[in-house]
Amino acid sequence: MKLLPKSGVAGFIKELSKTREVVAPVSDGESYAVFKSVAPGETPIIDGSRFILSPRSWFMPGYEVLFETKDGEIVDKTPETKAYATIGLYLADAHALEVFDRVFLDGDKPDPYYNARRADNAIFALVPAKKRWSVFWGMTGNVCDWKKACDVVMYDLGSEFVMEPMTDRGAELTKSLADADDSKKAAADALLARYDEGEVDVKAIGERLMWDNPKWEEVSRKCVACGVCTYGCPSCSCFDMRDDLKCGGAERYRCLDSCQHADFTLMGSGYNPRPGRMPRTRQRLLHKFKYQPEQFGMIGCVGCGRCVELCPVGIDIRKIVGGKETK
């Protein structure tokens, strides 16, 4: 394990940016912190002082042109694969990338656009010093396992970060840093332990979330279908593909979409298999806690708590899913 004093973060990022494009949460002063390529001289917000939006906005941009047509030909707009380093996403967000990998990269038709940003991306994941009130990482998985999703785990000990390299790439990128002594290592472990809530019984959760439970009606009554839970989520991956005309041809782009929107499943004929707020609320919960575990053995929710904080009507996913289920 290595040590990075907070005063050295700027220098570390400067060094890193010589070989990799650095992506980190930054803010323009007024708004929430957003993941962006860090401009020279810009200081990322990795001290937990501000609400950080999920890194999904970088891995899966809100607007991405898939291809254009020009002179009767299709021009592929797949971005070049570059070397990136993503710093300051939460450990839960790093785990959310594992969920993304299942969706976008598994199977015989991997997504080249996502892959271009993911293939050579060193992940520096953060375990914040202060556990926000909304965080429930430990309810959705084994947080110690999530370390495998990172190149380096950064434990925030207040005035410094303990840096734990998890891969050769991570070790290489942190080799210039000083070593951490045993007391720091112990402090880092103790910090992570605060997020760990024991083993999670995925099956029991799935069984509790019954499809035909009358409770769904009550849960969805106050929902205003704004979809902010899905836009704020680091593991929500649903998107829309649309066309627009442009000078000399057309473009097909993809943009974010949400299962909470009325037109998400609305068919051309006017028929909608999920016609109201209740089936849509249910779909979000079941997709994460039941369908995705059935599909690839992983709960789709990572417990980052963003939906809990962002929801304008205070719907708390933890209360719907129910208490922690330990084996």
């Binding site: 969706v103 199977g107 038709k109 991956s237 649903c238 593909m241 068919m267 298999p273």
Partner: peptide, 13 residues
């Protein structure tokens, strides 16, 4: 029949 966009199991619809 369901509404589809990507056709390859990713867009979630």
């Amino acid at each position: 029949e369901m509404k589809m966009k990507c056709g390859i199991g990713k867009c979630g619809r």
